[in-house]
Design a protein around this nucleic acid. Structure first.
Lengths: 192, 192
DNA sequence: ACTCGATCCTAGCATCGCTAGACAAGTGAG
DNA sequence: CTCACTTGTCTAGCGATGCTAGGATCGAGT
């Protein structure tokens, strides 16, 4: 019985290695460079091993996305808990969100840009994703304003952040004035 | 001399055919289905012909994006010119933007999601893209509010629309309440 | 009518995600 | 301790991708 447990531990450990390596490779050289061959070589196993853990490349991306969602949720909560007052919390939230996207571009892509085979806004949405939305909601509900559904407000605010994050990183928006855009967004959307 | 002109016309015509076919194929079956082989087969030429017009698949995507940008700019201007008053114009603008994204998902991807090798917010930004931004700016400048740079306001508003468009289409936002999100966005961001 | 240059196609390269089948290592029974 | 067998891993290969080299073909101008 103990033998089997050891094997399961080793399997789980190797699965974590795969996800961590995929993420590392993606951050270093972009997702295009994350091929099953390169990934297999880095973890020092052959390609088919990947398919004994994941159904395919999509699922590996999905695993990175889930890991990232959990981290992001933690980062958002850490940022907001250090701020005083609703308005300051929202600003901190927005900055933390954009900061996470900027510092973890590959993970952010896995979460929102690429197809990781994940469901959203539905019954079977994975827990980390729901929790990420919850982290946003906790702070944003305070400033939704009267008669506005907090979830709806969160969706709009989130969409704005997502737009800023992606357009900035794609070179569509000059990075210089990022901070002023955040201030404008918060001052207009948030009802204090 | 006339012979050469005819050849140039034919070349230009074939180039339009390539772009139109790529777009059509992408809208029908998604960009993944747009392979150089399939595209070549549809235009009834061999693969290498594509490379005598474009440097590679990226440039073809870029060409579709430019075509789309011009169309979108026209659609935005048509929508705003039919509305009375700044507030109504902004609402019409937002609806037209999201409507375009929803009805031309592949083109929208070419413009903002995929790598079409296009420059943005820089010196050598192609004209249709600058004009698309200009179309947004024309209407949004009216409601930027005192002391807010119109271009900065446009960037934020645009980012919010882009976020709504992409998140909705990716299934991240329930489509049911799209209209209410637009109303909330406009009512908060626009200063009338 | 003939030459020669432009134009286009056949064939192929390296790489991709993914899988079948051979092979080895470790397991538990006798 | 030996041996069949399950479990796990690897080698090799499939079809498809973007892209390119080199030969064939066609038409224009002398």
């Amino acid at each position: 019985m103990s033998v089997q447990e050891r094997k399961e531990r080793e399997r789980a450990s190797r699965e974590r290695l795969i996800v961590a390596t995929a993420r590392e490779l993606a951050e270093q050289q972009g997702w295009d460079a994350v091929t099953t061959r390169r990934l297999a070589e880095r973890i020092e196993y052959s390609q088919p091993v990947l398919y004994s853990h994941f159904r395919g490349k999509r699922e590996i991306i999905g695993a990175v996305a889930l890991e990232g969602a959990a981290e992001m949720a933690a980062a958002l909560r850490a940022a907001t808990s250090a701020a005083d007052g609703p308005r300051a919390r929202v600003t901190a939230l927005a900055r933390a969100y954009l900061d996470f996207a900027e510092r973890n571009p590959a993970v952010y892509d896995a979460m929102f840009q690429l197809d990781g085979g994940l469901a959203f806004a539905e019954e079977d949405t994975p827990e980390p994703l729901k929790d990420g939305f919850a982290a946003l909601l906790e702070t944003l509900a305070e400033v939704a304003g009267d008669g506005v559904h907090p979830a709806l407000f969160t969706e709009v605010f989130w969409a704005a952040l997502h737009g800023l994050a992606t357009l900035t990183r794609a070179g569509r928006l000059p990075p210089a004035e990022a901070e002023r855009r955040v201030e404008l967004l918060v001052s207009r959307l948030a009802v204090v």
